[in-house]
Design a protein around this nucleic acid. Structure first.
Lengths: 138, 138
DNA sequence: ATGGTTTTGGTACTTTAGTATGAGCTTCGA
DNA sequence: TCGAAGCTCATACTAAAGTACCAAAACCAT
């Protein structure tokens, strides 16, 4: 909103400034005036391009973001989600156990729970499901 | 290139047309002329936005595409790649065997070869590697 | 404090996955 | 036509993955 106000203010100022130029050209004859108008047109043309580019740049960081609501809906706990992330990295249960400082048994329990909650038969399927559900950032 | 030429032609024509309007306003007094200039400016402002939007729309279908060169570089055969795709879908060796109409033994062989070529220890890791290498369309 | 959830861990077993090795068959280019 | 490469399949194991069941400690909110 502030951006919009700023942009319009800038446009008004630019317009007033160009009016001065226009009058200046006006006293210098007809041809100069046409050139002045051409300059005005071009300047605003590029302003339009610039504004638009800026606007689109901010839109870009869009949807590759993930999670939260669906994770909660599925009843996946924090710890389980951590395990899910490690699974998607291609780690084995033993490796996950090491990185999370717990026993492999614990990881197996988490994985089993995850498979149920994600309705998957294998960890590879769990990865796919998680990606589909936008629970994992690809 | 043709687009650019067309756009500039259109701009020149628009300019000439607006010059006519400018002259028209010119004979109607100062205020009208300033309004005319403002109109010109705004018109070109929006033309700029429009052109820019069009240009960016064509750029969009960008890089989510995949493969080929790297697949060849890694020495992955067609059949092996098919297996890789099925793996990434979360299928088991047995299921892949069914969908590709071969025995599970064959799939195991392909998987083993894939793991070597992708430098992975597990199929889940193979999936990650393949995604990193842009061999799989996420 | 008491009950529900989460996290942790274990045992015992079944099922997949993955490795190693060998071998027959097809295809395709030199 | 000869050989390399790819695809197929089998046997025999080892190693992960997953299931089932149980249970103690930790955490959190009423």
């Amino acid at each position: 909103m502030k951006k919009t106000i700023f942009v319009f203010s800038a446009l008004i100022i630019a317009l007033l400034f160009l009016f001065k130029l226009g009058k200046y050209a006006y006293f210098s004859g007809d041809i100069s005036m046409e050139i002045g108008i051409a300059v005005i047109a071009l300047v605003f043309f590029f302003i339009g391009i610039y504004i638009n580019k800026k606007a689109l740049q901010k839109k870009k960081p869009e949807s590759p973001v993930v999670d939260i609501k669906k994770i909660e809906q599925l009843g996946i706990s924090k710890r389980e989600y951590e395990v899910l992330v490690e699974i998607s990295k291609g780690l084995s249960n033993k490796e996950i156990a090491h990185t999370l400082f717990v026993s492999e048994s614990t990881i197996k329990t988490h994985v089993s729970n995850l498979l149920v909650k994600l309705d998957a038969k294998r960890r590879t399927q769990a990865i796919q499901r998680a990606i589909d559900l936008q629970i994992l950032s690809v």
